[in-house]
Simulated assay, not measured.
Amino acid sequence: MDRGRVRSIALYIVILATVMVALLALLYTVSLFHIVPLKFSHVLYAIVIGVIIYAIVKVIVKYFERFFAAHKEYRHLKYVTFIISLIGYFIIALAVLASLGIDVSSVILGSAFISAVIGLAAQTVLSNVFGGLFVSVVRPFNVGDHVIINTWQYGALLPSYPPKYFSRDFMEASMYRGVIMDISMNYTTLLLESGDMVRIPNGVVVQAAITIRKGMVTVQARYEVPKTISFEEIAEKIKDQIAAEYDVKNLGIFIDESTMNTYIMLIRGDFPGEDADSIRSSILKKAMDIVEPMKTH
């Protein structure tokens, strides 16, 4: 928070304290010299208490409005100021009624009962709202982060056919990979690697396991090679070509499986970037350019 905002908030606090002291001094003077008839004194007390609480609520609301205006990532939380205002006005009403000698216990009990009913009826919605508040304050991730969100609330969709050996078909139980596009009051919006957009309820996000990918992606590719071609010879060539194009880490080339006439070469490494498909395509092309000419010899 910059010095200008600090001075502004300090000024509000000083003004509020001055007003409170002036009102209390006025109230004391009126009570001491009986300027106002006794039967109207409780009305004056109620007005003074109402004004003081109203001033406190306005200062708090003003602070949050300035905070949200200065931080773009929190602008969707402007509803918090409405909730604070609503609670503040309710407290003012209770304080004024109590100052007027009205029993507010029934009002409090009735409000608690209504709040419980509304809370049970809107449990899912409220969990998303408070989840959005939690995500926005704690910031487990930011807009633009490439993340993996693993949740247990949604079941996995299983293929109806057995995965082919060379396919990249795999089953991920409720896992979402992509870039965070927006964090709203109810949903976190994720741009999936498939290009689809998914909105995950914030009540689910706060219970999820979240992996933030920091510019590296693990890629693996398989390629079938005849046994007449030496594995050591092509492995070194593929390694040299990959290392010349990418700043790859933990690069390894292995024999993953063997058939009667061929073996399956597995190429795996950690590559910079997030686009695993394009990197995998490049690896397979390099393997193809090296292996295929050797089959004719």
Results as ranks from 00 to 15, higher is better:
Leu97Phe: 08
Ile264Gln: 03
Val147Gln: 05
Ile149Ser: 01
Pro293Leu: 10
Phe67Val: 04
Asp169Ser: 11
Gly144Arg: 09
Asn142Gln: 12
Ser111Pro: 02
Val6Met: 15
Thr188Cys: 07
Thr81Pro: 00
Tyr79Thr: 08
Tyr161Ser: 11
Ile229Gly: 03
Ser160Tyr: 06
Pro159Ser: 11
Ile264Thr: 14
Leu133Gly: 02
Met197Cys: 10
Gln207Ala: 12
Leu23Gln: 00
Ser184Arg: 04
Ala235Tyr: 06
Ala287Gln: 00
Ile9Arg: 05
Met260Leu: 09
Val129Ala: 04
Ile264Met: 09
Val6Gly: 07
Val219Asp: 00
Ala46Gly: 07
Ile108Met: 10
Asp103Glu: 12
Val6Trp: 12
Asp247Thr: 06
Phe90Trp: 14
His146Pro: 02
Ile253Asp: 02
Phe141Cys: 04
Ile60Gln: 02
Ile180Val: 15
Tyr74Leu: 15
Lys237Gly: 04
Glu224Leu: 15
Ile108Lys: 04
Ala244Tyr: 08
Lys72His: 08
Asp103Ser: 12
Val107Ser: 09
Val138Gln: 06
Thr189Asn: 08
Ser167Gln: 03
Val14Trp: 05
Val205Lys: 00
Arg222Glu: 10
Ile60Gly: 00
Ile49His: 04
Asp247Val: 06
Gly144Phe: 10
Val117Thr: 09
Leu38Thr: 12
Ile87Glu: 01
Tyr45His: 15
Gly119Ala: 15
Ile210Ser: 03
Ile149Asn: 01
Val143Met: 07
Ile92Phe: 06
Phe68Asn: 00
His146Trp: 06
Ala22Cys: 02
Ser281Leu: 11
Ala209Lys: 10
Tyr63Met: 13
Ser278His: 08
Phe254Ser: 13
Met197Arg: 15
Asp270Tyr: 00
Leu192Asn: 07
Val36Ser: 03
Ile49Met: 11
Val48Pro: 03
Lys72Ile: 06
Val30Ile: 15
Val206Asn: 04
Val219Asn: 00
Ala17Glu: 13
Ala10Gly: 07
Phe33Lys: 04
Tyr176Asp: 02
Ile238Trp: 04
Arg66Gln: 13
Tyr165Asn: 05
Thr189Tyr: 04
Ile267Leu: 05
Gly155His: 09
Trp152Tyr: 09
Ser85Val: 00
Leu94Glu: 02
Lys286Ala: 05
Val147Pro: 05
Ile91Lys: 04
Tyr54Arg: 05
Gly119Asn: 13
Thr188Gly: 02
